[in-house]
Design a protein around this nucleic acid. Structure first.
Lengths: 112, 112
DNA sequence: GAATTTGTGTTAGATTTCCTGACATCTCAT
DNA sequence: ATGAGATGTCAGGAAATCTAACACAAATTC
């Protein structure tokens, strides 16, 4: 994972901040969590910690709901996006590996 | 200010998160604030809210202190950095303005 | 070398935020 | 009408944060 992705996925925000950033209520945020749409971590005392990625997801949820989609619809939408991201990830990995092995054959860049 | 800068300066982190990110104690963080080295905002109930920029500043403070500098030294260092950033900002503004007025003369790009 | 300053630890009590669980309400679709 | 889905609201408790004060070691100043 890139540095940028790491930062994006750092669980650093309490629910109060997320509430302000998304204009959702605590109730809504917790409900979406219960329905597996977001997955905040928990701090030492058991309080939720959200990442910036979570905030993005919550904003998407908001949009989808306002567009008439149900929680279940959104679960499927996210599952689909998840699969695509995974494929993309895999194909990038594959590309990288094949490029590296090509370079290794040419012998100009070591694959360390 | 750019979108990126805006995000960087958004006051979103409670002191607990900042404590974990910097490995400083609350006491230290508050002391540095009292000495004008960081300037967290306050939430509705009066609790501190730090930005990612604040976190960076705190990490710098930590480095400087470990390097033997005093709080006052750091105040001056920051003041100097502040002035330089300001100058850079101004010169960028000046450049932008002069470019815009050049374009305006040529008449191809309106200065909105 | 005694006195002061500096940076930090620690504690206490009050306030704010967050937690879970339950019950209520409203809107659709059946 | 009935039931499911999404949200509001409330209660009681736990966790996080706040300020102010006292303590203290190390460095600095007189």
């Amino acid at each position: 994972m890139s540095e940028r992705e790491l930062r994006r996925n750092l669980a650093i925000l309490p629910i109060g901040t997320v509430r302000e950033l998304t204009l959702l209520t605590d109730r809504q945020i917790r409900y979406y969590e219960k329905n597996n749409l977001v997955h905040p971590e928990r701090g030492k005392g058991g309080q939720r910690r959200f990442s910036l990625y979570d905030v993005d997801q919550l904003l998407k949820i908001k949009d989808y709901l306002e567009a008439g989609d149900s929680i279940k619809d959104i679960q499927e939408i996210f599952a689909k996006q998840q699969r695509k991201a995974q494929e993309k990830h895999n194909s990038q990995d594959a590309l990288r590996r094949s490029l590296q092995s090509e370079f290794a054959k040419i012998g100009r860049f070591g694959v360390k």
